[in-house]
Each structure stands twice: as C-alpha cells, then as structure tokens.
Amino acid sequence: MSTLELKGNLLTLMVLHLQETNIESITEQLAEKISKAPMFFQHAPIVIDLHAVQNDDNSVDVHDVVKVVRTAGLMPIAIRGGNPQQREIALSLNLGLLTHTTPTPHSLIEELEQKEEKEEEQSIIPMSSMCKIVTHPIRSGQRVVALNSDLIVLGTVSHGAEVLAHRHIHIYGPLRGRAFAGINGDKEARIFCQQFNAELLSIAGKYRVNEEFPENLLSQSVQVYLKGNDLEIEPL
C-alpha cells in the first residue's frame, strides 16, 4: 500500500496583480482592500503576479512585497512571472514559481485579443462535430478547405481543383483533382470517392500522384487511408 497519493487539482486562488512598483502605494492600497473584508483575507493563500512589472528598470523587490503581503495577513505561496532576479528571490523565500500560464489581460487591447482567441476556440469546438457540405461542382483552380471538420462534395472535383480537410473527405461526384485529408496531421483521416480519377491524394502529408495509382481502380469507388506510412487505395 502506498502511503500517499499525488493528484493534480484545479484550485481557485487569489492572485495579486502588481501594476506598479512603488512599495508605499502597494502597502496602502492593499491595506485598503483588506479592510473591506478582513475575515475573508485572513490567512488566505495568495499568488503574486509580476507580469506587469517584471520589465521595469527598478522593479519591485520581492522581499518587500512578500513582507507587505504577510503583514496584511495573507499567505503568499508563489509568484507568477517575474524577471530571473525576482524568481531567485522568491525561491530563497520558499515561494513557488508558477510558469507558462496565460498572462491575464493588462490592457483593453490584450483583453480584446484574448477574447478573440477564446471566441475562436469556442467556434472551433462545435465545428469539430460538423462537416462542410459543398453542393456545386468544384472547378479547375478552385480550392475548398474544411477546417476542423469533414468535407462532403456532392458534385465533381475537376482537374486542377483542390479539396482539403482537417478530417475525412467524401466526394460523391467524380474526383479528378487533388484531395488532401487530415491536413493537420490526422493519420486517421480517409478519402472516400464514388469515381476515382484523382491527380493527387494526400493524407496527413503522405501523398501519391496519379501515375502511381493502380489502374484497375481508376473510375471505381474507392476509399483511401493511411497504413503505416503508405497510402492504401481500396475498392469500396
């Protein structure tokens, strides 16, 4: 029997964001905040975030900040950000170092950027279960891309046209152009087509050109998938 267990846990922690380096005003403003709910702040663990001030020429002395925070009744447990010097001091004070966390927004612009990022992420999530359906023929020189989804083409993919998808590609008309499935490296992606006359096939970056296709499969219904490092073309 093991005597202990180590587990990751997501906790809600208070973070003190330092916006400027003047230790007097830090002391003053911290005292003011705490005076509003002294019980709430009593012995509360807190992380000190130095992102906003780490590049200042006379950045804060971590000794001073920790002293101020302790005096205020809080328990500093780690710092986030900070220049190498500050991080060294934090270690000497037995504080943890938090790294690689997304910096919290310090300006409206950063906030907007983060919001956009978040929105992008969000719009991607439901997309992954959807697919892009194209009902018109895809002509020579045209390129259709399905991001984070399957691509279904009901018409022809002409010579010189390109269809690309992060996931599978299904083509119900003749495939005469180029098809790229799993373009972000998804080795499980497949290409299905009703009439196989492609110029080029690619799955997760592995490709084969027309000259290498087995002749008996041309104009047939086929599926294409990755077997090891080779593209397999198989009749349906």
């Binding site: 018109h136 020579s140 045209q142 002409s158 010579h159």
Partner: peptide, 13 residues
Amino acid sequence: VRDSDRIVGMLAS
C-alpha cells in the same frame, strides 16, 4: 476543356 472549367469557376466567384 480544363481552361474553360477554370473560367466557369471564375464566373462563379
């Protein structure tokens, strides 16, 4: 034929 196909694509875009 291929060039015509290209032109038809452009007519649509």
